[in-house]
Simulated assay, not measured.
Amino acid sequence: MDITLSLFTAFLCSFLSIKILKPLAEQVGLVDKPNERKNHVGHIPLVGGISTFIGVLIASVLWLPHSSELRIYIIASAMMVFIGVLDDKYDLSVRVRLVGQMLIASLMIFGVNAYIADLGDLIGFGGINLGWLGIPFTYLAMLGAINAFNMVDGIDGLVGSLSITTFTSLALLFLFNSDKQLATFPLMIATATFPYLLFNLGLPGGRFKKIFMGDAGSMFIGLSVVWLLATGSQGDNAAFRPVTALWVIAMPLMDMAAIMYRRMKKGQSPFKPDRDHLHHIFMRAGFSARQSLLIITILAVVLAGVGIVGELLNASDWLMFVGFLGVFVLYCYSLQHIWRIVSFIRHNVTHEQ
């Protein structure tokens, strides 16, 4: 009953927050404006991340056992969302964003002593323990998760669908480890994201006016993902192995890594926007935005499912790691031969018609 009430609270508070925040965002200019890279119509309120955080905040305070870890998480999340709102409003420099994100990540690392040091037996020669190097590794993981979910936010519904997939997968992993309390938390985040998804996609039937997640949302999601990964994959009572985490966040992680590599190979900044993400590829191949959303979400669910099944079957760490690298190489190959793939798909579609 408590789980049901906590999820209902997260959904309801997130939904009501959107209704309250939308007109306020329009008044203060917290909106996304069309430009050469953004072809949406009108000024879209950037309140998806704020509303998701509010839903999680209220549900956590009302229904989760109070602890120092929860208090520090709420404080860190509030600070991360605040920086994200400032970035959405004033377009902060990369340096300012990174400094703010690292300071907030320090609350997790040093406030609750949660960081990723044990990587498991990735190469088949025994467990890899980073020791104190786990601290800078966790900083990099935090920045990576934030940017991964930020970069995939290119078509309606994508960042919401991928984050829901990730948090639901983490909840299942905690449930399979008989930890219902920890499983409730990612489920609350996933549930609090649903109202954003409804508004972002205009469901049902275009009834709700569009909103965007904003950097506040991607920063909140990134912090929450790494926090849960550090909590779930480390320690003697870990709910899952670190290699499983790669599969759970495979789609946004691979998209970010491949794109940043391509940009640096061209001598460009890894943070420079372009139109070579996976959803751009599908749309250039002739798929609609909704079709691209469905295909990518299914791929993310399948990859997360592989990780969960591998965890349940206790597949060796090195086998799961090699499998992940194989999928990533295939993904990079596809991006490097984008026009061949597009031409092949178009040719076959035309031939069938």
Rank of each mutant, 00 (worst) to 15 (best):
G206M: 13
D156L: 04
M219H: 08
S163P: 09
L175N: 10
L175Q: 11
N147K: 00
S93C: 06
F220N: 12
T191V: 11
L103D: 00
M108P: 01
G160A: 13
N200Q: 00
V226W: 00
F137Y: 13
F208G: 11
N113A: 12
M102R: 05
L98W: 01
G206P: 13
D88Y: 02
I189R: 01
G217C: 05
L197K: 07
V96I: 13
L107C: 07
I189K: 00
L223Q: 10
A117G: 14
L140A: 13
A148F: 02
L140M: 13
L170G: 07
M188D: 11
F212K: 11
K180S: 14
L133P: 06
F174G: 12
T191G: 01
M213W: 01
S161V: 09
T168G: 10
F212T: 11
M188R: 11
P204D: 07
F194G: 03
L122V: 13
F174Y: 15
G154L: 03
S93T: 15
L119H: 06
A171V: 11
G111R: 09
I164Y: 02
V225P: 03
A145E: 05
S161M: 12
M142P: 05
G157Q: 08
V159T: 14
S178A: 14
G217F: 03
V226H: 01
F174A: 13
D91I: 08
I109W: 00
G131V: 10
T193D: 03
F220D: 11
Y196Q: 00
L140E: 05
A117W: 04
P186S: 04
P186D: 03
M188A: 11
D121R: 03
L223H: 07
D91F: 01
F208W: 12
G160S: 13
A190L: 04
D91Q: 15
L140T: 10
L187T: 08
G160E: 00
A141Q: 07
K209V: 09
I146V: 15
Q181N: 15
G134I: 00
L143D: 03
G206Q: 13
Y196N: 06
A192S: 15
A171H: 12
T184S: 14
L107A: 03
G206L: 14
L175G: 08
M108H: 00
L173K: 08
Q101D: 03
A114T: 08
N129D: 15
S163A: 09
W132K: 14
T184R: 13
G217N: 05
V225L: 07
V94E: 10
F220Q: 09
F167A: 12
L107D: 05
G202N: 14
D118H: 09
S106N: 05
S178Q: 15
F137Q: 11
Y196E: 02
A117K: 10
T168R: 00
L187K: 03
S93R: 10
A117F: 05
D88Q: 06
G134N: 04
L133I: 08
L162H: 07
L197Y: 02
F125D: 14
M142F: 05
L173V: 06
I128M: 09
D215E: 12
M213V: 00
Q181V: 15
L130I: 11
V152W: 02
T168I: 15
M213L: 09
L182D: 14
M151F: 12
Y196A: 01
Y90S: 14
L203G: 03
L203E: 06
L223K: 06
A114Q: 13
T168N: 07
S93P: 08
T191S: 10
N147S: 08
D91L: 04
G134H: 02
